[in-house]
C-alpha cells in the first residue's frame, strides 16, 4: 500500500492521468481521477463508463491515460473490469502473466448515471462476485455528459433539464439515492465517500490507497462538483466540494466490511445548507419565498442524516 504522507511527497508521483483531455475547465473529475490513479505505485487497468470522463479522456486519436484503459458502454464499467480482473487471475494461475514482476490493480470509474442508475446492476453483480477492484463513482448528481439531466443522485430541489424549475415546480422531486450505504450493504470490505480539492486531498488519496490495497471489491463515492451544470464559476469547484462537507450535505465517512462506520471529518461548526445551496445556480429558485420551505426540509434531512451517521459510528457495530 502506498504511504500517503504529506502532499510534498505525494506530488512527486508522476501523473498517470494526463492533461490535454477535454473536460470543462475546473472539472472535479480531473482532480479526483488524478488522485485515485496516483494513489498506488502498482500498475493499473482502468475501465470507465460512458460519461464526461470517458468521452473527454479518449477522443481518438488521443488518450489521456498512462495506464491501460477500457471503455465499453454506459452500464458496464464494473462488468468490463471484472472480466479483465478474471483474466489476470486466470493468467496468473497458468503462469502466463505478461509482466511477472508487476502487481496489477483494477479500477473502474463511472459517473452517477453509470453507477447509481444504468450501471447499478453491473456494479452490484461485480461487487457480489467479489472481484478485486476499486469502483469510483464520480458523483456530479446528474447526467452532465448529455447536458444536465436528472439522475437518481440528483438532490431534491435541484434544477436539471429533465427536472426543471418552473412556474409550478421547484425542480427535482426525489431525495438523492443513498448509494454509498447500498454498496456497504453488499458487504464490500471497504466503502467510502470523498471530495476533491486541497482541503480533503489526503482523505481521498488515503482512501484510494486503502481501497486499492484491500482485497475484494471496494467503492468510493466521490462528490464531483460540476461547474457547468451546477452553475458556479470554474474556480469555485474546490470550495463547493468543501462546503458540501462543511454543511454535511456530503459527509466524509467510510464503512468497513459492510458495517463498521467511521466518520472521517467533523465540521467544527456545521454550516447551514443555505451557504452551499446559494452558491449554485441549480438551487437559485429555492430562495424564492414560495420555495423556502424546501430549504428548511433539506436542512432537517441533512441534520437527521448527520445524526444517524454519528449514532451509527458510536454504536460501533
Amino acid at each position: 500500500m502506498k504511504n500517503i504522507g504529506n502532499l510534498k511527497e505525494f506530488a512527486c508521483t508522476p501523473d498517470r492521468f494526463q492533461g490535454g483531455h477535454r473536460l470543462c475547465p475546473g472539472c472535479a473529475h480531473g482532480m479526483i481521477v488524478r488522485e485515485v490513479v496516483n494513489a498506488t505505485d502498482d500498475d493499473l487497468v482502468v475501465s470507465t463508463a460512458t460519461g464526461c470522463l470517458e468521452v473527454c479522456s479518449a477522443i481518438y486519436p488521443y488518450t489521456s491515460w498512462d495506464v491501460s484503459w477500457l471503455h465499453i458502454g454506459f452500464e458496464n464499467a464494473a462488468a468490463g473490469i471484472s472480466g479483465a480482473e478474471a483474466m489476470y487471475k486466470a493468467l496468473s494461475r497458468k503462469n502466463k502473466l505478461y509482466n511477472e514482476d508487476r502487481n496489477v490493480k483494477f479500477v473502474a470509474f463511472g459517473g452517477d448515471g453509470g453507477t447509481y442508475d444504468i450501471g447499478f446492476q453491473s456494479l452490484s453483480g461485480a461487487t457480489e462476485r467479489g472481484h478485486d477492484f476499486l469502483y469510483v463513482c464520480l458523483d456530479n448528481e446528474g447526467y452532465m455528459n448529455t447536458g444536465g439531466q436528472r439522475s437518481s443522485s440528483t438532490p431534491i430541489g435541484a434544477h436539471t433539464t429533465t427536472s426543471p424549475r418552473g412556474r409550478v415546480s421547484y425542480g427535482e422531486k426525489h431525495r438523492k439515492k443513498d448509494l454509498t450505504m447500498i454498496m456497504a450493504a453488499h458487504g464490500a470490505p471497504y466503502v467510502a465517500t470523498a471530495v476533491p480539492g486541497s482541503k480533503h486531498w489526503k482523505d481521498l488519496a488515503a482512501k484510494a490507497a486503502k481501497a486499492l490495497s484491500t482485497v475484494g471489491p471496494t467503492f468510493i463515492n466521490a462528490l464531483s462538483p460540476c461547474t457547468t451544470e451546477w452553475k458556479f464559476k470554474p474556480e469555485d469547484t474546490v470550495e463547493i466540494g468543501d462546503l458540501a462537507v462543511e454543511t454535511c450535505m456530503f459527509p466524509l465517512y467510510e464503512i468497513e466490511d459492510g458495517h463498521k462506520l467511521t466518520i472521517n471529518y467533523r465540521p467544527k461548526n456545521k454550516v447551514p445548507v443555505e451557504e452551499y445551496l446559494s452558491k449554485q445556480g441549480r438551487f437559485s429558485h429555492l430562495f424564492k419565498p414560495e420555495n423556502k420551505w424546501l430549504i428548511e426540509e433539506i436542512q432537517k434531512e441533512v441534520d437527521r442524516y448527520w445524526e444517524y451517521l454519528q449514532r451509527r459510528e458510536e454504536a460501533g457495530v
Partner: peptide, 23 residues
C-alpha cells in the same frame, strides 16, 4: 476463470474486458 455474471449484458461486457486484457 469462470465468471457467473448477473446478466448477458454483463457476460459479454466481462468477455470484452477479459479479451482486451489479453487471453
Amino acid at each position: 476463470e469462470f465468471v457467473m455474471v448477473e446478466s448477458e449484458h454483463s457476460a459479454m461486457s466481462a468477455c470484452v474486458g477479459a479479451s482486451a486484457a489479453g487471453g
